[in-house]
Simulated scan of single mutants.
Amino acid sequence: MAKLFLNLRNVPDDEADDVRELLKRHAIDFYETQPSTWGISAGGIWLNDADALPRAKALMADYQQQRRARALEERAAAAREGRAETFAGLFRARPWYVLGMLAAIALVLGLTLALPYVLL
């Protein structure tokens, strides 16, 4: 019986491609479902044989560990070179966006903290 291996909601294309390649390289049969027209289902990668799930999960754990290490290295390199995104850099690039988000946060906090006392 088929088993869902990876829900593709919020999965970057490069990661989905890497997972497909990983499964092909290790001869694990899979198929893919496409996202629904209205966005209810995001699609997924399914394993044809549920018995292959433990092996696929082990491969995925190794892959995710390598991807995490690579992302941390890239982030550290960007920070060393001054390319990393910071709050100050974002504020300089998009001041109205940052101010709008801060105002929205303040509004939500104000309503959350003050509304119970107003309604009492």
Rank of each mutant, 00 (worst) to 15 (best):
A61K: 15
D51N: 10
L102R: 03
F87R: 07
Q65I: 00
M101T: 14
Q66W: 02
A84N: 11
R70L: 11
Q65D: 11
Y31C: 04
A61Q: 14
D29W: 01
L59K: 09
S36F: 07
L53D: 06
Q66A: 15
L22I: 00
R67S: 13
Q64H: 07
M60Y: 11
Q65E: 08
A52S: 14
E32K: 10
L90T: 15
H26D: 12
R20F: 02
A88P: 03
A58E: 05
A16H: 00
D17W: 01
A61V: 08
D14S: 10
R20L: 02
V98W: 06
N48I: 06
Y31W: 08
P35A: 15
R94N: 11
A104K: 03
T33F: 02
A77G: 07
E73Y: 04
Q65F: 01
T37P: 01
I45P: 00
I40D: 09
T33D: 01
R68N: 08
A79Q: 14
L102A: 11
D51E: 12
Q66T: 06
R70G: 05
Q34L: 10
R67H: 10
D51K: 13
A58K: 09
D14Q: 05
L59Q: 08
T37S: 14
E74C: 01
Y31E: 09
D13I: 04
A88R: 13
A61M: 05
G44K: 04
D51Q: 10
D51S: 11
A76Q: 15
G43D: 08
I28D: 12
D29T: 07
A50I: 01
A56S: 00
V11R: 03
Q64G: 00
P95E: 06
L22E: 03
S36D: 14
N48G: 13
G43R: 07
A93L: 11
D18V: 03
L23S: 06
A56D: 01
R68L: 12
M101W: 13
F87T: 05
E21N: 10
T37K: 14
A61W: 03
R83W: 04
A77T: 15
R92L: 10
A79C: 02
F87G: 08
R92F: 03
R55M: 10
G82A: 12
R80W: 02
T33H: 06
A50D: 06
R55Q: 13
T37N: 13
L53Q: 07
A61Y: 05
I105R: 06
D18A: 15
E85M: 14
A76C: 09
W38Q: 10
V11Q: 00
E21D: 12
I40Y: 05
F30P: 03
R20Y: 02
D17Q: 08
A16S: 01
D51F: 06
G82S: 14
I45L: 11
